[in-house]
Design a binder for these strands. Structure first.
Lengths: 379, 379
DNA sequence: CATGTTTGTTAGTAAACACTACTAACAAAC
DNA sequence: GTTTGTTAGTAGTGTTTACTAACAAACATG
């Protein structure tokens, strides 16, 4: 804490110098974020919300209108004295984003989304089950098709891919697609001429939950699919990790009592309890405890693995995303209870485990949110 | 986006606008950081390092010299053509920081440190073992004494305290000190008239390791004392958590095979294996495996607890701090091996577990680093 | 000694936002 | 219907910031 009013040093500890143009971009993004989050707003309200003066806001809004990101939508209607303000809103349907979800097994999914993250157009490209690997060109073609199908100018292309993805848009390894070292970001950028963002599917999902959903500033999202992955937001920032492999907790050993053999060759991996195939099996072969008992054990194991993470980061919220018939209440409750039983919690509401919102489109929405963040400074 | 999520989003995006004065502070801090890290530097070199122009740097340096944070130390001596530059350096001994370490049991520790984080003056205030609690006034008096003993003007006071500390400098709960809801930050600020920073001891320690040591951008520091605490830096940012309790992993249940009864009333807490008292006991009563076997088991348990954290955050480095006779190689190795055995690592050097540097003064140095960060933008 | 190089400063310019003052528009009170 | 007070938005001016251009000083090298 600082009790005196001495000038605090800059909070932004970036390594680069600040120029006036960057200041401008920062404040433009600030205004856009405020309007995006708050809906139609008058310039005066923006001024109060940002701390900028009304003339400064007028100037910024004028530039954003000029760029096509904001539009005037009407007048305030109110019963207070004074001139009613002119409402400006994000040009929600005037720009679009193309998003790709490469995680589904039966098809490649693409979509055009508006600036709210709502899907406007859907495209699917079924995949041959026998295919050894997916030709990256098919992905590029699908992206081009989506761009062509967009009803509005496209701001950029976002991709949520399985596997390990570098910050430069290179997919280092994606066994499900049969890819190693695929420069998808560069290929897409070349083909479409648009800004491209590529990230891991779990990172995209947590981004969607954080930016477009109701996510808190510290958030862990568990993604249950063929395997298990996680995406993390800490202090409002997505976590990448020292080797870009943050969230890879599917093969963490859980407990000290062995477990089934995992496809990775070891025993007791989290995936052997918590993954779509494992949960399907558990539900198909109910033990003596009934249909839910098997799922309860999975939740318990998940809680055991999560407890140290929750305690270390002091997470307030864990979100689980996956097939709706598998992410059932019993799983959520068992997970929450197991975490609570294994950490020293002062309050009963320290942690909530909940389902993701719009699980079907979460990767598409997250990939779109990524583009909105990089292109407009939204988030 | 549903309407119900808008208030939260608006709250999150209420980052402050950038004014010219803040730009100035940012660039001043940038220059200071560069010199602090690189030693005596000429203005032209600073210009190249920051990307700012030479006139801008001259102006910034002039202001920093005016404030007393930089000094000219001499001329470059070199054998290249051109005018030799005038070297400027951080006024390393011209300003000081007062730091307090409240974690020791036998005494309160205070120190005056220079801008490099080197201890210049030490003060100890022995505590009565029988004391029920520590009078905050004693801490305030010690701080005043340290300020008076400083050979240079004091920039601020940093405090590393056990227990839960809010960002406003309130110590919510510190059983070891007998404190609940102690507004130490405000009291110190009032008494000294200086900026005050208060934080948890583990947070201070990780700050020291990150800022003044050789810490990476993602860092977990385990602090072994009467109990066990941790401090976290993720993406270069210290982690506070949803309730300000990040790093409280001492009472995480480890494994699924029970364990000794913990003072918190449950079984299998990490502290029952890894804490100063537990390790002392283990070393005093060697099992059949010998003196090291008991410590090895502690390291193994620590690794079991850390594995999910390391995997989720993709940490490259874990640092262990504690009494030197307890943090022995066997503990480090056992921890590292246990983590490796329980996560899917692609490379053998994915994670290194090492000892902290200067373990004795780590909290003092971290508390000082906090002040340097808030007051000068260093770090 | 002339030449080229590098440093640091001065003078002027451009960009961004703050401040003040003004007009426009509206509600409430008379 | 008129007055009063309040709010929104816009000009114009001033301050702060950093950049560009130009220059003198100091040095190595030929």
């Amino acid at each position: 804490m600082s009790a005196t009013t001495q000038p605090r040093a800059a909070q932004r500890s970036s390594r680069t110098a600040v120029r006036s143009a960057q200041t401008r971009e920062h404040n433009l993004a600030l205004v856009l974020r405020l309007v995006h989050a708050g809906g139609p707003t008058s310039r005066a309200t923006i001024a109060r919300g940002t701390g900028l003066t009304r003339p400064a806001v007028s100037d910024l809004v004028a530039e954003l209108i000029d760029r096509g990101h904001l539009v005037e939508t009407g007048m305030e209607e109110q019963n207070r004295p004074g001139k009613p303000g002119v409402l400006v809103d994000v040009n929600r349907s005037g720009r679009a984003v193309v998003a790709l979800d490469l995680t589904a097994y039966e098809s490649l999914r693409a979509a055009v989304l508006d600036l709210d993250g709502t899907v406007v157009v859907r495209l699917d490209r079924p995949l041959e089950q026998s295919e050894a690997g997916v030709d990256p060109q098919v992905v590029v073609d699908l992206a081009l098709e989506a761009v062509a199908a967009s009803p509005a100018p496209v701001l950029g292309v976002g991709v949520g891919s399985p596997g390990i993805v570098t910050s430069a848009g290179v997919i280092t390894m994606a066994p499900n697609l049969g890819w190693t070292e695929v420069h998808l970001g560069a290929e897409l950028a070349l083909a479409t001429g648009l800004p491209v963002e590529v990230c891991n599917d779990a990172d995209a999902a947590v981004r969607a939950e954080y930016a477009l959903g109701a996510g808190a500033d510290d958030l862990l999202l568990i993604r249950i699919g063929r395997g298990l992955g996680a995406g993390l937001v800490v202090g409002g920032q997505p976590v990448r990790g020292a080797h870009g492999a943050a969230g890879e907790i599917g093969h963490v050993t859980v407990g000290t009592d062995g477990g089934r053999l995992c496809r990775c060759g070891r025993r007791g991996c989290l995936e052997t309890w918590v993954s779509a195939p494992s949960l399907e099996t558990a539900l198909a072969n109910p033990t003596e405890g009934g249909r839910e008992a098997a799922v309860t054990e999975a939740g318990e194991r998940l809680g055991i693995a999560l407890a140290p993470i929750v305690a270390a980061l002091d997470l307030g919220e864990v979100v689980i995303d996956g097939p709706e018939h598998l992410v059932i209440d019993e799983l959520l409750l068992a997970t929450e209870r197991a975490v609570h039983d294994r950490i020293l919690s002062r309050l009963p509401l320290d942690l909530t485990v909940r389902r993701s919102v719009q699980p079907g489109d979460i990767v598409l929405r997250g990939a779109a949110a990524l583009v909105l963040g990089s292109q407009l400074g939204l988030v």
